[in-house]
Computed example of a mutant assay.
Amino acid sequence: MSGDKKPPVLAQVAPRYLAGGGDPRWVTAPLQKAFHWQPSRVPLSPVVRLTRRDRQAELLLSPDPDDHWWTLHYTGSSTEKAWTMRFGARTPAEIVAAATDALTTGPADSTAEPMQVLEQTGWKRSVVDHQITSPDGFVTVSRHPLGALHIEVTAHDGPWASEPTARPAWRAYFSDHTPPHLAAAVLAGMVSTEPLLRDEKAMVPFLRYSVRIDRERVPAHQAEYALWDRVDRLAAHRTGTPLPPQPPSGSLPRRTR
């Protein structure tokens, strides 16, 4: 019998908004390596702070279980209002990255109104007109007249209860004046049907009860390749340098934390 250990593998998890935090480098590596945001190093601290070169935008990753982990802030200018986006600890990094990608690469040619992104994929407006709920009932998105947006994600607390209780998974808040294309990008990342890759054993137990996990596992090392392929592609977008097309199967898998 061989003593060799099996290489680590990752599970494909859906829906993506219940997949858990993932690898924070999916957000931070492109900002620093592709777009040259400057890190502020605090010795012996887990806090990560990246600042855009014009100092008008900042990303803060502060691991505080009682508060938001991710904060993306724009200080405003003579023509633009200041705004802030905050995400809870278990927000998938890929969903946070949808916001930072939209900020760094600019709006698409045609940007949908944020709530329309949800309605176009079958999410329904609730009795309260400014709220939309996911088909599985786990997500509620509230939009306020001046543009502020709240996201609340829950999950069942376990399969053993006769009536499972909804347990908070994560929350997000976008302030007034958050650019609509950033909010739309986040919501599009939430409703995407592409599964996210996670270490199943490291997932918070109550999240595992509310997700679908594909039987096919993916080698973990491929996720590392996918991360740096992502960085290269965003750098190419910034400089206009063409890159070879991605494989027909879509993006390579991603690594989890």
Rank of each mutant, 00 (worst) to 15 (best):
R143H: 13
V47I: 11
G158A: 06
P244N: 10
P43M: 03
K6L: 14
V117K: 14
Q12I: 06
W69K: 02
G21Q: 12
H181A: 05
T91K: 00
E163Y: 15
T241G: 05
S134R: 10
I151D: 09
W123K: 14
G21L: 10
P30I: 04
E152H: 15
L72C: 01
W69S: 01
L252A: 12
V139T: 05
P30D: 00
P46M: 05
M190Y: 06
K5L: 15
G88K: 07
Q120E: 15
D109Q: 14
V117T: 13
L252N: 09
A57R: 07
I132C: 03
R217A: 00
D64H: 02
A161S: 14
G189V: 05
E194C: 12
E224M: 02
D176T: 15
F138D: 11
A169D: 01
Y17M: 02
E113G: 10
A202S: 12
T104A: 11
F138T: 14
R25F: 04
Q120Y: 09
K6Q: 13
A14D: 05
V218H: 10
L234T: 01
M190E: 06
T178L: 12
Q32S: 05
R53E: 05
S192H: 00
P195M: 03
P244F: 06
S78Q: 12
H181L: 01
D66E: 13
L44Q: 13
L50R: 04
A29S: 13
M85P: 05
M190P: 07
T121W: 08
R171I: 07
L44M: 10
P114R: 15
W83F: 11
L146I: 09
P107M: 04
R125E: 14
P179Y: 10
D23S: 02
A29Q: 13
H177P: 05
